[in-house]
Each structure stands twice: as C-alpha cells, then as structure tokens.
Nucleic acid binder design. Sequence first.
DNA 1: CACGAATGGGTGTCATGTCAACAAAAAATC
DNA 2: GATTTTTTGTTGACATGACACCCATTCGTG
Lengths: 151, 151
Amino acid sequence: MAKTRWLDEREAHLWRTWLRLNQELLGILEDQINREGGLSGADYAVLVPLSAAPDGMLRARELGREILWDRSRLSHQLGRMEKRGLVVREECVEDARGAMVRMTDAGRAAIKRAAPGHVAATRRHFFDHLSDKEVDQLTAVLDRILANLGS
Amino acid sequence: MAKTRWLDEREAHLWRTWLRLNQELLGILEDQINREGGLSGADYAVLVPLSAAPDGMLRARELGREILWDRSRLSHQLGRMEKRGLVVREECVEDARGAMVRMTDAGRAAIKRAAPGHVAATRRHFFDHLSDKEVDQLTAVLDRILANLGS
DNA sequence: CACGAATGGGTGTCATGTCAACAAAAAATC
DNA sequence: GATTTTTTGTTGACATGACACCCATTCGTG
C-alpha cells in the first residue's frame, strides 16, 4: 500500500468544478423538463430511447441497457409511468420471460412537448459556451476516460 | 418561438458521453467509498467540508452552501449520520436559530479510512487518463460553462 | 431429454431526496 | 419599539433509488 498521492491544487480545482458543474447542470435541465413537459428526468430518460425505436417499442432489457439502469429501477419506473399512461407493457413474443415496453400516444406527446425546450436549454447552458474545436477536444478526452472505466 | 435547432451528430455524441461518463464514474466512486469506509456518498460529501474546518465543526448553513444541498436534505442526512455517531449537532452561540455540526472521532476515522482509496480511484479512473495540458484545457472549459450557468 | 445454471422481470423493504408546511429567531421597516 | 419579512432549521408525507429475494423461462451441458 503506497503512500497516498493527494490531488494537487489544479487537480482539486478541476475535480470540484467537474462535480459541481455536473450537479448544477443536471439540476437545471431536470427542472426544465419538469416544467415544460410535466415529466421527471427519469420519465424523459425512458422516453428518449423509446421515441427513437421502431413503433416506439423496445424490449425492457434493451431499454435498461441503453440508459444503464438495473432491472428493478426500470421496473418500478415503468410501473409508475404505466399508471400515468405514458407507456404500456406487452408480452414479448420471442421470449416468454421478456416484456415489451411501448410508448403511448400520450407518452409521445409529452416528450414532443418537452424536447425542444430541453435541447434549447442544453445549448444555452452547455454548447453555446464551446467552440467547435473545444467540442472535439472535449469529446476526445471524455471518450478516452469513458473507454478506460472498466479497468 | 424559433424552430428548434437539434443537436448534430458530434454534439449528440458528446452529450451522451458526458451523461454516461458522469453516471458511471460517480457510480464507481460511490461504490468505492461505500466499500472502504462503510460510508455512503452522501456521508462522504458531508464529512469532507467538516474535516477541512477548524475543530471539524461548521454551521449547518455553511455546510449546506458548500455542497449545494438544501436545508431539508441536509437536516435529514445529519439526523441519520447523528444516529450512526458520525456527527453531533450543537447549539449555535451567535445565532440561536442556527445549528453547529461537529464531526465525531468516529466520523473522522471513517473519512480517514475512505479518503485514500477514494483519491486513488479518482486518479485511476480520471486523472491518469489526462495529460497536464488537458487538465488545464478541461478546467478552462468547464469553469467557463459553470460561470455561465446562472444566465 | 433432464437438470442445474443463467437470464429477464417483478416485488417488498428500506435508505435517500424533494416538497410543502411549520416554528423560532433575527433583520428590516415603519 | 412594534410589526412585518427573511433566514434557519426541522418535520411529515410522498417520490424515487438500491438491494435482496422470488418466480418463470431459457440455455448449456451431460
């Protein structure tokens, strides 16, 4: 067990900024979604992959994989969303264990209502402050970090 | 209401990476703290400012301001931590409304146990994949975004 | 085919976070 | 100095998330 190498001043600053930015930015965007679409951030996260899928339908397993949720969390969330009429669950034909999740018309309407404001807020608070070059640099760095997370 | 300008391919990619990286990275670090110190991420967040404060004591208001928590959340969390003997609440001399929060010896021991592994994990999963120059670039970009969040 | 392991999904329970309402003290206003 | 307004902290109710466990189905292996 080697002696700990603590973060130096620059590193600590970056780390605090990283955490704080993440926290505040997500909070702002969540509020935004909440106000404009009557949706929670969780609702939105679920509806996004569904709206991109054919027939607005995905297998629960796939859905969970896309948004990195465990099955329990997804199941609870789907139960709540089903109760509010945003999605329905149907049987899966090719695998009797599975469950298909389909977005209802109300679900599609809700995300169509929320999405423009969400994108606008994302631009206003994030992309508007980045040059094209910085987008590329940032992408390269974050992709690299993400790719090494497994280790 | 102008027509929505959706994210292009590069932007969408960066945005997904940002969200996913945060989610996974924070999850990993939380697990780490959890295992090594028997602490939750919330416990850790509370203990960090306390361990940096004189006498391990801060006014609740200050503590909440540092970690950007609202009063209710902090109060609940402190209640739980007090029950587990990590902190104690004391009266505030100069303001009878206030509450002082003091880290107990057990609290200090817990964070001393968790901190080295936490820093190591932060390095392993984050800083080890960044050059010095990239740290500076990233800091500049994120600071700028953070500074503009109020708008 | 039979059997144990793995997978997909659900449920209950408890920890955590949010929100509205409250009470007490301090600050501001008149 | 009395009265409103803010600030500080707590509480209770409720939404959400994490975790352990359950059941049915499918897969892998003999």
